[in-house]
Simulated scan of single mutants.
Amino acid sequence: MSNLSELGEFLRVRRAALQPEDVGLRNYGIRRVPGLRREELAMLAGVSITYYTRLEQGLSNNASEAVIEAIARALNLTPDEHIHLMNLARPVKGKRKTAHKPDFARAGTIRLIKSMASTPAVVLGRRSEVLAWNRLGHRLVAGHLDFDGPNRPATRANMTRMLFLDEHTRELYARWQEEATRAVSSLRLLAGATTDDPELTELIGELTVRSPEFSSLWAKHPVVNCMSGLKYMHHPEVGDLELNFEVLTPPDESRHRVLMYTADVGTPGYVALQLLGSQMRQDVAGDPEQVGLVSATG
């Protein structure tokens, strides 16, 4: 789907989510369809109804930044939604879609997460594929999968795919719906900023077809840049964990992310992480190289 089509769909979904009273307008009786009318949104943004209609229909690829800013204000968009709207409205001309080369975590990033033996860490690529993980990160989020999986680009685990299609991963999250919404929100933001990635398009298509829950969430166009927060897990080895998560983004063009999990000292989550680490160390005892991390680099 083109960015212009995505732009139109995003505008329609956000317009339908607003009531007249949300934007200071009077509501005169029952409406045939939910949300603001096109003419109301156009009036609030200070653009003609004809022009706004063309935007929703995906027929205009030259909207000025001032117009998009005005529409964002009229829709009461959050900062993340605002960025997403600007990305969708940005025209891309003459750019061919080409296959990307296999991606690999930087050697420095690998050294970083290898040094954090007591902190679960996962390095994610631009499509949420797992590029690397340390031993504790693997044990926490995907202990049922091959630890060496990130070495094989063609069959790497993908955190978003696992969340919707892998039974063990679904059972890992005590608040699965919350986690699913967060994952789709992040993927929406990424997709809006990426117009030349056929593998990302393929992932979205696969999840739309194979997961009704993903399809339903995707159609709602949630957009949030999830950089920190809480994750509620029910781990098969150590039970319930409430963990903080932080996402670090390297200052380069790789779009890699380092996802780290921590727990406050003395909390049940902290105790559970300590127990999980102890069990992991027992399993790899006698093989020091395995205590760190395995990942392909390039």
Rank of each mutant, 00 (worst) to 15 (best):
A105G: 05
A121R: 06
P150R: 01
S128E: 10
V238R: 02
T78I: 03
E21S: 03
G192Y: 10
T249W: 09
H138E: 01
Q290I: 02
I68S: 04
G125S: 09
L4Y: 12
V271Y: 00
R210F: 00
R139P: 03
A142V: 03
R73T: 02
N87C: 11
L273I: 11
N158G: 03
H144V: 00
L230S: 11
E237F: 03
I204C: 09
V47F: 06
L85I: 08
L136F: 05
P79L: 03
A263D: 05
N158K: 07
S278L: 14
Q19R: 12
H221F: 15
R139A: 14
A45Q: 07
L248Y: 10
R90T: 12
L203C: 09
V223A: 15
R161I: 00
E178A: 13
W218H: 11
L200H: 08
L241I: 10
R281M: 09
W218S: 12
E202R: 15
A66D: 13
L85S: 07
P153W: 09
T160K: 09
A105T: 03
L88T: 04
S5W: 11
D197A: 09
A99S: 14
I110A: 08
L230P: 01
A42N: 08
G58H: 13
R281C: 05
A263R: 06
T155S: 11
P34I: 01
L75V: 03
S215D: 14
A107Q: 11
I113K: 04
H256C: 06
E246I: 07
T267M: 05
S118Q: 13
V23Q: 02
L55A: 07
G8P: 12
P79V: 05
L243E: 00
D197C: 08
N27E: 14
P20A: 08
A154Q: 15
V265G: 02
G269D: 00
Y52I: 02
G192R: 09
N151F: 02
P222W: 05
R188S: 14
